[in-house]
């Protein structure tokens, strides 16, 4: 058997994990701190099972219907909770995810209660899976380029500034919900089609943690980060078996260190390194000298200007949060 065949299960898990991670990453990239994609994933798993088992639908229509339904559900959720900010929005979406789990337990025959649904066999092939993945990844990658990419950056980092250059921030935020619903539900539907069984235990709080760790360790600002995260956390448990019984602890330490020390993840480190190289190359080419000369030409007091420049180097421009904090 080839490497591909022996590792097929892990490859499938990487793909669904990647889409799940993207369903959290896309809203994060737009400054919407929402975990609703995980709820859509849970919905996708069950909806896929129901459509295939109870309605004898084929694989592709199942995925299509489930994905759209997931997107709409999260969009409606977004319409309600969009005005919440930061942490409260995050927690509202966590509550949404957990409610999906409770509904699954109490759904009677439709969801199969605590035992869930099993035996979901369809005509789904790896060809389908790869095609969907490629289409999604191309679309996501394009959203990071050009005008759309710049505008998403603005909406995330400074919504006020974004609206002052004419960006409809509200629409972007709603789109973030919709897309995360689409991605989450697609991931869920594909998961049930390759795994063939689902129980309420599979869609708990730990799934939020898993999706979040993938993009925190991989990198939250680019699809490349999500790919790194999905690969690392799908294959890490396998690799860590060498370490033996403490693999979970090692896993925990990696996540904690990444969350604290490198909030932009592995891909973020790469971007930083690339910028540093660019800076050095610029110095060598003398472009910087020209720029500094231009800077000097326009300043009357050279020393002062240079000192100011040095001060400013490395200190990122801070935009005040403007919050008065909580009251007591």
């Amino acid at each position: 058997m080839s490497w591909y065949d022996t590792n097929l299960v892990l490859i499938q898990a990487t793909i669904t994990g990647l889409l799940l991670a993207l369903s959290i990453q896309i809203p994060l990239r737009m400054g919407v701190f929402s975990f609703a994609g995980v709820g859509a994933y849970g919905f996708g798993c069950y909806a896929g099972a129901v459509l295939v088992l109870d309605h004898q639908m084929a694989a592709l229509p199942t995925i299509l219907v489930t994905t759209l339904a997931g997107g709409l559900i999260v969009l409606v959720l977004g319409l309600f909770i969009n005005r919440l900010n930061g942490l409260t929005l995050a927690m509202a979406t966590v509550a949404f995810d957990l409610i999906i789990g409770v509904v699954a337990v109490n759904g009677g025959e439709t969801t199969g209660g605590a035992t869930g649904r099993y035996g979901v066999i369809s005509d789904f092939t790896m060809g389908h899976m790869w095609t969907i993945l490629v289409v999604v990844m191309v679309l996501v990658a394009l959203s990071e380029r050009g005008k759309l990419g710049r505008r998403i950056d603005a909406v995330r980092d400074d919504p006020e500034l974004a609206s002052s250059v004419g960006i409809r921030v509200y629409n972007y935020r709603l789109a973030a919900f919709f897309v995360s619903g689409l991605l989450g539900a697609a991931a869920g539907a594909m998961n049930i089609l390759v795994r063939s069984a689902i129980t309420p235990l599979d869609i708990g709080f730990h799934l939020i943690v898993l999706a979040l760790t993938m993009i925190i360790v991989g990198g939250s600002l680019s699809w490349k980060g999500a790919v790194i995260g999905a690969v690392v956390f799908t294959w890490l448990p396998d690799v860590l078996q060498v370490i033996g019984e403490w693999q979970e602890l090692v896993y925990g330490v990696i996540v904690a260190v990444a969350a604290v020390l490198m909030p932009r993840g592995i891909y973020g480190l790469y971007v930083e390194a690339k910028r540093a190289v660019l800076r050095r190359r610029r110095t060598r080419r003398g472009a910087v000298r020209a720029a500094v000369a231009a800077e000097r030409a326009r300043t009357t007091d050279d020393d002062e200007a240079l000192a100011e420049m040095e001060d400013d180097l490395g200190s990122p421009s801070v935009t005040p949060g403007g919050s008065m904090g909580a009251n007591l």
Binding site: R150, D153, A154, S164, L221, S317, T319
Partner: peptide, 24 residues
């Protein structure tokens, strides 16, 4: 009207504090 629609009518502004996007 919304802030973004005013901007699209071509009212532009700068802010009291520098507000540039760090990743661009």
């Amino acid at each position: 009207a919304s802030a973004s629609s005013i901007a699209r009518k071509r009212v532009a502004r700068t802010f009291q504090t520098v507000r540039l996007l760090p990743d661009l």
